[in-house]
Design a protein around this nucleic acid. Structure first.
Lengths: 234, 234
DNA sequence: GTCATAAGTGTATTTTATACAGTTTGCTGT
DNA sequence: ACAGCAAACTGTATAAAATACACTTATGAC
């Protein structure tokens, strides 16, 4: 069943469980969200998160991954449960509890044709259109979670390409925290964490001088987590 | 339907939504959890969190509050959604997504007869018995959330009586963080936050000298939150 | 070869966290 | 009545972390 068709099959007296995906991306210094234009009634033409009913035989988290793959062609994406939305009247059509999950994707990885087929558009977070049902609330909650989580877990890296520069990383954190950071202090802090591997390549797309590329040091991160290390990024 | 009977009515091919409550209390310097002995099959005699199906016409959060009131007689309790547990095979009897919610209650407020009728027992957190299904995981997750949340939101106060002493508060935080805190630094930190109202009464139950009682300053807390103040307790 | 632009570097100051020990209070027991 | 006890309470010095701040370097464009 495609997500857009789900409403055709519902029964009013049944309890449904769905999942909705809050998909973040980062592009050109801006945090963006992937939203979808509904092509069926009810709410035809309104903007919405992408979602699906959870099938009897699949985990809730599997359902979300399935949706994400259907839409973006991506696999192995960072995804985490946000929370369940369970107001009895949250959807006027039928009784449905939705488990919202947020995903962080590398914006140049996804399958653009596939998303366009599904009526998807990237919006900057401060230019979001009104979203259907409680999806606006979900996005707000996800944004709050992202802000908080970014402080103690290096999830920012999930939004960047594998190789990235320090100024890129900084501009991402500036987008998440919605404030300017001091470049000297940012760089200093990051270097002391020991989470970056400096490469012998430069990215010259944004300056003549070029900025060194780095990789995230997953191995060392795992080690540090195990030893109970406490992060704080920016 | 009482929670203990819910399994009698299930259909194998239906999707169910339930809620389970992780109920924390604080007594005699120890953090405790309220768990229940099942009196029906399946899992007769095993320890379990208390829960219920979510009814068609009620919000998920209402369902949790209903359960809590049925069990403890309490109303207006601090309660917050933990997360949804949605593994397809989490309950072998039927397909059920459970939305776990954790509650903090003042342990001398609740209705002891009522809880005993329901087969409830308080366990210290490090003396918990094995719990049924994924309830052990829920408790673990709730504990992690409580630890983290206590750092930036003054939720500890929900676990203490309205009037409390600084040493009581400290011992609560020591129980949450599972480590000793320096009494001088703890007191200093708290006083600078401006969240306490000193009363003209003393609690003499734990020392001859007596310790001054304090109230939590909800009004000032609200103000500080609005002005974007950032807490860190202990 | 000079101009423009982003990348990169170091230090001083303030703030916050931590470590640490002695005094006060008021009941108890003799 | 007074010595003993136990918990409540207080202050200061040190270390660590966060913040504020300005110039130099590299390189392509002209």
């Amino acid at each position: 069943m495609t997500p857009a068709l789900k409403d055709l099959y519902v029964q009013k007296d049944k309890m449904y469980v769905a999942t909705d995906c809050i998909i973040f991306g980062f592009d050109a210094g801006k945090l963006k969200l992937l939203v979808f234009k509904r092509r069926v009634e009810p709410f035809l033409g309104t903007w919405s998160l992408i979602g699906s009913f959870v099938r009897m035989e699949e985990d809730v988290s599997e359902a979300a991954k399935r949706v994400l793959t259907e839409i973006t062609g991506l696999d192995n994406v960072f995804m985490e449960q946000l929370k369940a939305y369970g107001m009895a009247d949250r959807d006027p059509g039928y009784r449905c509890v939705s488990i919202a999950q947020f995903a962080l994707i590398r914006i140049d990885d996804y399958d653009k044709e596939l998303t366009e087929e599904h009526g998807a558009h990237w919006f900057e977070l401060n230019e979001l259109p009104e979203l259907v049902l409680d999806h606006g609330q979900m996005v707000e909650d996800a944004m709050a979670r992202l802000k908080r989580k970014a402080r103690y877990q290096p999830i920012g890296f999930e939004l960047l390409p594998e190789k990235f520069t320090i100024p890129q990383l900084q501009s991402l954190y500036e987008a998440i925290y919605q404030k300017k950071l001091d470049d000297r202090n940012f760089r200093k802090k990051l270097m002391t964490l020991g989470l970056l591997i400096k490469l012998n390549e430069k990215d010259k797309t944004t300056s003549r001088r070029g900025a060194f590329l780095y990789k995230f040091d997953y191995d060392n991160y795992q080690k540090l987590v195990k030893s109970g290390y406490n992060f704080e990024i920016a």
